[in-house]
């Protein structure tokens, strides 16, 4: 059953939204979502890699011999990741510092390789582009949402990407739930969001 371009795009936003529905790529999801801004930045970097690698893998799908396809995919993905790393270092240095080791780790993010293997290598360029963009935006939204929840509960304020720091909770009369911005808070936050999403009935 062939899907339309719109369907390929929108499936990444809800039905197959990466961290919550597919529960894939959890390492950066748990690691960098201490603030909304970090989550958003990581999401953008991953989206860029995802879209570029999907398009290129799809273009090369008839040339790449199937026996060495994984190696070829990894070369393609690694190239774009290095590109992102260099560009981020040059133009968004502070983000580069906070995201740290998670940027090179996009190479082994199973969402990226998963989309290349499961989708782009079997589909034409335009659907692959839509697929990458949809999954990427879904990933960015998930990371931003989780980052925002953890940041608000953990510190009382939220850093809008490219915007100001907005204070939402007055933490002067109670101690902020500091553990939310630490590692255990990542698991608790992700678990609660998974639970909330599962409350919405699947069609």
């Amino acid at each position: 059953m062939a899907k339309t371009i719109t369907q390929e795009f929108t499936k990444g936003l809800w039905k197959e939204i990466p961290p919550f529905r597919l529960v894939l790529g959890l390492c950066p999801v748990l690691g960098v979502t201490t603030t909304m801004e970090n989550g958003f930045g990581m999401g953008l970097a991953t989206t860029f890699v995802l879209v570029c690698s999907n398009v290129l893998v799809s273009m090369l799908r008839n040339i790449i011999p199937s026996k060495v396809r994984i190696a070829c995919f990894i070369v393609v993905i690694a190239t774009f990741v290095c590109l992102v790393e260099l560009l981020m270092q040059a133009y968004a240095y502070q983000l580069f510092i906070t995201l740290g080791v998670f940027i090179p780790l996009i190479v082994v993010n199973c969402i990226v390789l998963g989309r290349a293997e499961a989708f782009a290598s079997k589909n034409k360029v335009i659907p692959s582009l839509a697929d990458g963009l949809g999954i990427g935006i879904g990933f960015t939204l998930s990371l931003s949402a989780l980052g925002a929840v953890r940041e608000i509960l953990g510190t009382g304020h939220v850093s809008i990407p490219f915007g100001p720091l907005v204070t939402l909770l007055d933490t002067s009369w109670y101690p902020a739930f500091e553990f939310m911005v630490k590692a255990p808070g990542a698991f608790v936050g992700l678990g609660l969001m998974l639970c909330l999403m599962n409350l919405v009935p699947q069609k």
Partner: peptide, 20 residues
């Protein structure tokens, strides 16, 4: 295929690295 892919990738990255 792998050689060409890796060479193109290496060349591109070297250029970007130098440029930035």
């Amino acid at each position: 295929v792998i050689t060409i892919l890796a060479s193109v990738s290496g060349g591109l990255l070297a250029a970007v690295k130098q440029g930035t």
